[in-house]
Amino acid sequence: MSTLQRWHDVDVTYPPVDRFGRLDPGDGRAAITPETVLVTVMHANNETGTLQPIADIAEITRPRGVLLHTDAAQSAGKVDLDVDELGVDLLTAVGHKMYAPKGIAALYIREDVTLEPLIGGGGQERGLRAGTENVALAAALGAAADLAARGLAADEAARLTRLRDQLQAELTERLPARVHLHGHPTLRLPNTLNIGIDDVVGRELLAAAPDVAGSTGSSCHSGDDQPSESLLALGLTPRQAASALRVSVGRWTTPQQVTAATDSLAAAMTTTGG
């Protein structure tokens, strides 16, 4: 149960996703009622990297006067973002996903959208959040966003895609017929790879390959042994979800490091019974 339901008695509807983790805009349309005031959809899933059809959803929400929010924490700095093209009313971006320090984020608010203050009292943040701003972190977020924009202009997304696909190809070659992609094969972030490996528990595999930085679900829930809800929503069984491994490539990742990660994971298979 969500906090909105628990604390504020708000009715929340959760439309299903397809086997790739994408929302069918038709299902979104069916979930909207005359009482609906807000639709919120992740722009990119934080486990599989699957991108959602936000612009298509906006074409449904806007004529109905329903606000559309998208969480772009994962996608900001990884793919091109244009709030006008997406058609969103609200968009959140997180600094540390763009190499800014942790603890800073940004909220885009369309000009004619009125919000209640998150923290009342002072006039900071245009009256929406009282308290002295952390100027250093705000400046760091701006600098990180600028560097990310330069990287996108220099085709950084294509470089990350090559590294991501290299990792998947090398693991598939080392473990033939045992590696399965979770998420959409093309409509996904360039840096994120989520795979399942037959007859392996992802948590145990990572423990046996300590030089590989990865996770078995969302980084927000690292250490949680429960199957990922995101992966179960794709139709995976708990056993299949437990075999998941999420690995990301980044600004300083090299092809040599990708191969080294493949070698480590393949070697770890022998110690985990795989």
Rank of each mutant, 00 (worst) to 15 (best):
L152G: 05
T237K: 05
D155C: 15
S218G: 10
P185Y: 09
G121R: 04
A145R: 02
T216G: 05
G26W: 04
D199L: 10
T216A: 09
A73Q: 06
N194F: 08
A145E: 09
T270H: 14
A130M: 10
E204Y: 10
L4I: 10
D165R: 07
L91M: 03
P16N: 13
M1G: 13
A241I: 01
T272N: 02
L115M: 09
V212C: 06
L67V: 10
T259N: 11
D112V: 13
G131T: 14
A158Q: 07
S228G: 09
A169W: 12
A153N: 15
L167A: 05
G151T: 06
G28R: 00
T253V: 01
R150E: 11
H182G: 11
G28E: 04
D155T: 13
R203L: 11
L118D: 11
L118M: 13
I197E: 00
G142Q: 02
A30C: 10
A154K: 13
L152D: 02
P34V: 09
D199G: 12
E229P: 07
C220W: 15
R62T: 07
A242V: 01
T271D: 07
S243R: 01
A100S: 12
G121T: 03
V79S: 01
A261D: 03
E156F: 08
L245F: 05
L38P: 00
